[in-house]
Amino acid sequence: MPELIVSPSPHIRSDVSIEKIMYSVIIALIPTTACGIYFFGVHVLYVIITCILSALFTEYVALRLMGRKFVMDGSAVITGLLLALCLPPGLPLWMAAIGAAFAIAFAKCAFGGLGHNIFNPALIGRAFLTASWPVAMTTWTKPLTYDAITTATPLGLWKMQNIATPYINLALGNVSGCIGETSALAILIGGVFLIAKRYIDWRTPVSYIGTVAVLAFALGQDPLFHILAGSLFLGAFFMATDYVTTPITRNGRIIFGVGAGVIVVVIRLIGGYPEGVCFSILLMNAFTPLIDRHVRPRVYGVKRKRFFVSSANEGD
């Protein structure tokens, strides 16, 4: 009689794994990356490579310091790539490298690595760079010129000089801005791919973009301009859907999207920055633990929806 393996049920597992999801995200980012390189030239490629390498290297070193095994699961690559995509095309490479290193070291590894971070590492990297080198982070190059002619982003133009950019340019990406944020169409292709594969939930991007559109419309702004301009698409499809830092319930994801949408509009209209996608997601990341705690699905056979369940009896 052979020695058999005994393990608890279930005895079959789905073939979806962390690696598979991560590499699908990378594939979904290819159109965006290609657009970035096409519009802003070869320097962009260096920025992307620098970010990815720096992210991988930092993760390796940090895990070694922590005495853990380095696993090539693709998450560091995504962090590096996403960070690169939300940086200005002309950013000095050393800044990009520091940003990626900061993102991985403090936003990810300090919390215990993949799965434990509170904030989206790529966005922390971007926020860190914005706070550290505001000038470099707001120096935009003109698309398709391949030399550093500085211009303003569509949102900047709109905020400072009240000039609206044509929709077609916003959709195709023929405007200045961060590497990966300009072409709404390319992002949409990747996003739809991920939604179709069911790796991301459609609720987040839809509620996020929807909120921005509705709120912009309600406040007398051009909703289409507001959803196409800036990094809203990139944020909505790739950052606000990051598993680790967003709510785990479907309703929670809708709340997340709505909250982020409101913050984006508030920052764009009265804030100190022309764009607020990065900060809006970071702020909602901070709210995520609270959302997770209080927004729970209704349990089968349990009538009442109970909010504030566990804190009810702790006061006394």
Binding site: I5, S7, H11, I12, R13, V16, S17, I18, I21, V71, D73, G112, G113, L114, G115, H116, D201, Y243, V244, T246, P247, I248, T249, R250, R253, D292, R296, P297, R298, V299, Y300, G301, V302
Partner: peptide, 30 residues
């Protein structure tokens, strides 16, 4: 034997798939 091996366990990435599929409406990951 190949199919019987339990795959290596990794850290939870909070994808929420377990919450989505739970027919009882529980939060298995928590």
């Amino acid at each position: 034997r190949e199919k019987s091996k339990t795959p290596e366990e990794r850290a939870c990435v909070r994808c929420g798939m377990c919450v989505d599929v739970c027919p009882t409406g529980l939060m298995p990951t928590i």
